[in-house]
Design a protein around this nucleic acid. Sequence first.
DNA 1: ATGAAAGCGCTAACAT
DNA 2: ATGTTAGCGCTTTCAT
Lengths: 392, 392
Amino acid sequence: MKNPPVTLITIAEKAGVSVMTVSRALNDEGSVAAKTRAKVRAIAAELGYSPNLSAKMMKGSRTNVIGILVNDLQSAVINEIIGAVSVAVRKLEMDLVIYNSIGDTDNAPSRGLGHMLQGLCDGLLLILPRISDTQLRQLEQRGLPVVLVNYWRPTDLPVVRGGNSDAAAAATRHLLQLGHRRIGFITGSAFTGQSQERQHGYESALRGAGIEVDPKLIAAGDFGRRSGYEAASALLTAENAPTAIFAANDEMAFGAIDAVRACGLRMPQDVSVIGFDDIPAAAHVHPALTTVRQPLAAISDAAVRELLLRIAGSGGEQQRVEFPSELVLRDSTARAPARADAAPAPKRATAPRRTGAAAVKPAPMKAATVKPATVKPVAGAAASRKRPAGKA
Amino acid sequence: MKNPPVTLITIAEKAGVSVMTVSRALNDEGSVAAKTRAKVRAIAAELGYSPNLSAKMMKGSRTNVIGILVNDLQSAVINEIIGAVSVAVRKLEMDLVIYNSIGDTDNAPSRGLGHMLQGLCDGLLLILPRISDTQLRQLEQRGLPVVLVNYWRPTDLPVVRGGNSDAAAAATRHLLQLGHRRIGFITGSAFTGQSQERQHGYESALRGAGIEVDPKLIAAGDFGRRSGYEAASALLTAENAPTAIFAANDEMAFGAIDAVRACGLRMPQDVSVIGFDDIPAAAHVHPALTTVRQPLAAISDAAVRELLLRIAGSGGEQQRVEFPSELVLRDSTARAPARADAAPAPKRATAPRRTGAAAVKPAPMKAATVKPATVKPVAGAAASRKRPAGKA
DNA sequence: ATGAAAGCGCTAACAT
DNA sequence: ATGTTAGCGCTTTCAT
């Protein structure tokens, strides 16, 4: 069962040449007689040889492996980015290794980050890193080429990212144009700085429209669906509830939608909801989610390109690459109800519904795997709504 | 910027001891004076030392890294499994490296699989491997410990998996009990053998009920949402269309639901849909998807445990570990319409709808990112349906 | 309790 | 075109 591993030596002996010749033959380097090369390759194939990556790396030669470091493989955006990076890396005939460091913190210096750093790959892509400043500083000191993706906090490391603030402002303006005046915002966690940027866009759009930012309309979430549900529930059941909710990401927007329904409100007639990221589910949900899309493919391509530059040693001059995001209009946003803070007249001939402020108190969302035991009926919603989807 | 990497030597010099002492101090092995150990560790921490994994591996010592090989990081089930494995691995204080080998085929012997094999990790978990028999055989010959997860085709490698056939039969019987007689099945791709197993359960349940298997009711998909849409569209627009559709996984079930709606049919009143896997989205969709759940945590724990056994050298006797899956009843299945193959009378007072066979021909599903440009209204669906969710 | 030597599989640099 | 030497960072083995 456990054959002795096939090494260059094995092949060299069998082929009657030196190890070096085998190495050259297999790597297409130096000059090797065509015949020798063929022979060596044949034997290698026959023996099922595969090079020992570790040994390669020890020699400091390139391994053609790019590492990705993530903290959360369950996150839809992160997976989208990984997918896009996959494609970009594959184009370059390189390999991709993903390193999942959920929950890693400073107290584990020899684990987590450290491992990949020196050992495994030519360079490292940090996707939405929930990384401590200490760790970030360690990275900066090390030689391993690193590029951060969608990171917004201050750092000297190279960063490639999609637009946040401007697009969030555009999303907010979209709601304003629909007549919404009380617009709630659900923040995400603070690690990457993206939530702050998005919130900044939200606030500046409001100010631009002469509307004061009401702290009561800003609820804290953590980018998870459940937190979106809870934050939205709080917003919707408070006095003077918002008629629109802007969640800092799509997953929280989904949670917010759940909350809207749990409150007995209709989406989008009573409450508009808008997300951020445009994960695939956003288009598939009913009604489809209006959200902000980042050009993930472009971001990923650029990130890989930047990383390669650094691996090649040409310390790319450009330390910040940014791609604008765009608003994607779908069906979760609609005109604000006639009077935001009173029970509005139903705009279409549908069953009468409670709406606006002081909605039905929703039950706390069930844990982890939510099986909606008793689905709150959402009858007659979205009766005949149509809108051409597309860019803003 | 590019500091010389911190090695044992660096630390040894600074501490005024030999490299070996440093190694021992850092690894808690052999005997080292408490004072020396403390000193060495302090210096290591100060310098931000992290061990060079490659060098460790070259010495054949364990690295405490477990590798995962997947072919598709976009797949929701795979991500669920990865998540569960993450947890299991973390419990053991080990690290996890994910290797994405999308599209790897036999023609790339030195790439893909080969890389991880000898170099990077102590053992390898193959999740839903879309792997060729050749590659599988290569693995068997190599020494690297390997465990397959959710693989159903013949192999001598150890396998840990969740039940398919029995649970699929249970799902089918559920539909039969609801009065469905014409039940469509959408297959997945054949790589892992799971689709075949599920289909087998479907067929045996039908036969058990004295119903002949109609090949026209079996449509080919590839586990992707889009293929589910297309397969379901074909089924629903054919003569003598099914009143229920069982998709070999949840993502195809979602596609099937899209198709049901695109046909102007109601779900579940006109057509019941049932999936397999119970990915998180299944519970969040409206109406929530009836599906089959595999005990992913148990599977992952067992897989990691088996792998560790093999890494430790004690070639676990048990080559097959299997966990039963269970039916999860939600809201996408309902009693069959009164007469399956005629236009049924609407069961509730809703807008008149075409239903049953010869439904509206749906448009082909839009590519990749589906933005439903013109959402087919699905008014009044699921008017006041309630059912306690839970296990069968 | 500590150190010195050897070597893991590979490749860059220098022979031949 | 091919071979030889040396050494990457670490640990195992055998001293001390």
